[in-house]
């Protein structure tokens, strides 16, 4: 699989994760509006961070430039993923049923791993810059 296709596939996976967290946020909203907002914010940032990259690399032929843009988007997803991992299991988010925070936590672990691998791959494979 070439690099651009690899990035597209992984970003779609991250995009789906963002959508699922958004859905969890809507579920949470009815239980606790304050935690629901945080779910929605994390979901929206994951979703936008992933989806905005796709049109930005659609017409690019230069693999390094694709890598540079992928690095930018994946830093955002990585950071928000770490925040989600730290927060979803915190007491403030465990006031009600635990199943939703657990699912959100696992999704964030996946997004952190995937975005971390994407940054590493972009730097190693196409010599993308870690600071754009």
């Amino acid at each position: 699989m070439n690099f651009k296709k690899y990035i597209k596939v992984t970003m779609v996976i991250l995009l789906v994760i963002g959508v699922v967290i958004l859905a969890l946020g809507i579920v949470k909203w009815s239980e606790n509006v304050y935690t629901g907002i945080i779910y929605l914010v994390i979901g929206v940032i994951q979703f936008l961070g992933s989806i905005l990259l796709l049109p930005r690399i659609a017409k690019l032929e230069d693999q390094k430039e694709v890598g540079n843009r992928a690095v930018q988007a994946n830093w955002l997803v990585l950071s928000i993923g770490i925040a989600g991992m730290a927060l979803f299991m915190a007491p403030f988010f465990r006031l009600e049923a635990m199943i939703v925070p657990y699912i959100a936590f696992v999704l964030c672990v996946v997004s952190v791993l995937l975005s971390g691998i994407n940054i590493y791959t972009a730097v190693k494979k196409v010599k993308a810059r870690m600071v754009v």
Partner: peptide, 29 residues
């Protein structure tokens, strides 16, 4: 140097913004 500052900022800034939001939510709650 500048690269070091940027790497760390990429990683930390979205997280920090979110935690400030969590603080606000805890405050409102």
């Amino acid at each position: 140097g500048f690269k070091g500052l940027a790497w760390l900022s990429y990683l930390a800034v979205p997280f920090f913004m979110l935690i400030a939001g969590v603080g606000a939510m805890i405050g409102i709650a």
